[in-house]
Design a binder for these strands. Structure first.
Lengths: 270, 270
DNA sequence: TGTACATCAGTGAACGCGCGTTCACTGATGTAC
DNA sequence: TGTACATCAGTGAACGCGCGTTCACTGATGTAC
């Protein structure tokens, strides 16, 4: 990756970008299924076969758009994590900042949202390249909770009332959660982190289940809003979303007031 | 609607049903966007133009499938409401029964699920006919809470801890919730129910916000499971779903144990 | 009960369209000596 | 610095496909008298 590249290489990068840009435009117009190589080429003043110099097939172009979309929403979430006050801000404020950033991106790019969080495109199988970008929003949400705990700003969830055996996290789920923790664990500083991790695990299962469910709820709210299920049900979309994610964060045990709730209503969503 | 109809009318109903059935089959194979009148006709041994005797366009056929899908999942939810023990069963058990029924249908009919809860089909605008069927699952969930309250089986939600002004339901959302309550209210038995409804409203807003958010979370969980977001994250799908909806129900204040949690793991979903 | 007419289901051909992908090709841009 | 060759971007035509929808038509099924 030299800073100065040959003219050919530069041209290639530019045209690749132009193709993706035009493809995104058509995506926003018509949705993923209507996206066609021919139409993109036509709009760019090229002949359709020329696109094959840049993308070996329509599916590869789609994959590139999917990766870009995951990265765009991931960027938005991570920016909110930093600019929402950094690790020192009130955890609840960070949580809602991330949620609002994701919603802001989704409202601004509904078809890209549908591309990655809606029905899978028929006949298209997501390749491995999408896995890491796809996880960025989830990781941002996890960061909020982690940082809060590190700062002693996390209440421990109250046991259910009345106590109920069904509230315990069953072993299969515990295994999933343990695998996740292992995957997310930073490389160990000391030697044996396995046992330490296991010791800490028991108390965390309930929290982690809530966190994953909150992650699903966030996108459930967005999908309902964007895909029309809230039509004739909830019209005060901004306020309802704020209220719901604020409650969610509080249920996770995040401390702090949700500063900026009013300020966010109008301008924060572009 | 006479019970005995002419042969023509009967044939018409049968063929209409056969068309929808074949269309559903293709939907399950390839998804909504690939559904084509020509392919349906071909499979039924008809010529493509013959379908226009039954559906004036592809969009009308799609609409019929959408309505059918909403009704199918609505049926499943309502059946669970009745067979999950009726109004006298423990509210939490009824709640999880409805949630599981919805999931069971979704897993059995993923493409129909995607048709109604996934990305909107581009260029297709859902007509008014879909509104009522689309609301049936939500109404079933509401019933659980209503019946529980009527039976004194509903805990009132605890105020947030620490008390937070942001936790109060803002006026715009209160207006939406009031409109919903009005729409759902049974015709008044006495004369002036307006004031009585208003009096009861204040205490209900928090509950109703949670209920709608729970509704969104239910489908957020299902969409994540069906659309692939849980891949490499949660593999114990049954157990995780049960755990999450059980907690959800408890957070709503529904009393009772979640009976049948173990029994449900394997067989209940078909 | 029988006949004359209207209604309807289904046919087959056609219109016009857009799509993804392949292939042999022409020039222009880069590279090695 | 100049020349010979290789690499690459883009062209234009073509293949083969499937789609939604229209239209004039043929028979069969129903209805009114």
């Amino acid at each position: 990756m030299t800073a100065i590249r040959g003219a050919r290489e530069r041209a290639r990068a530019e045209i690749t970008a132009a193709i993706k840009e035009e493809a995104r435009r058509q995506l926003a117009d018509q949705g993923a299924t209507k996206l066609s190589l021919r139409a993109v080429a036509r709009e760019l003043g090229m002949v359709s076969s020329a696109l094959y110099r840049y993308f070996p097939s329509r599916d590869e172009l789609l994959t590139a758009l999917i990766v870009d979309a995951y990265n765009a929403v991931g960027d938005a979430a991570e920016r909110a994590l930093r600019e929402g006050g950094g690790p020192d801000a009130a955890p609840l404020a960070r949580w809602t900042a991330v949620c609002r950033a994701v919603r802001g991106w989704a409202l601004a790019h509904p078809h890209e949202y549908a591309l990655i969080y809606g029905s899978p495109v028929p006949g298209y199988a997501a390749p491995q390249d999408t896995v890491v970008p796809a996880s960025r929003v989830g990781l941002a949400l996890i960061s909020v909770v982690r940082d809060a705990r590190a700062a002693g700003q996390l209440r421990t969830p109250e046991p259910p009332e009345p106590p109920d055996a069904a509230a315990e996290v069953p072993p299969e789920v515990r295994a999933d959660l343990a695998a996740l923790r292992a995957r997310l664990a930073e490389p160990p500083a000391g030697g044996a982190n396995g046992t330490a991790a296991q010791a800490a695990a028991g108390g965390e299962d309930v929290l982690n289940e809530r966190l994953i469910a909150a992650w699903a709820e966030l996108f459930g709210l967005l999908s309902f809003e964007l895909f029309g299920q809230f039509n004739r049900v909830i019209e005060a979309r901004d306020a309802f979303f704020d209220l719901a994610v604020c409650r969610l964060g509080r249920e996770l045990g995040l401390r702090g007031r949700d500063r900026g709730r009013d300020a966010a209503a109008g301008r924060e969503y572009v």
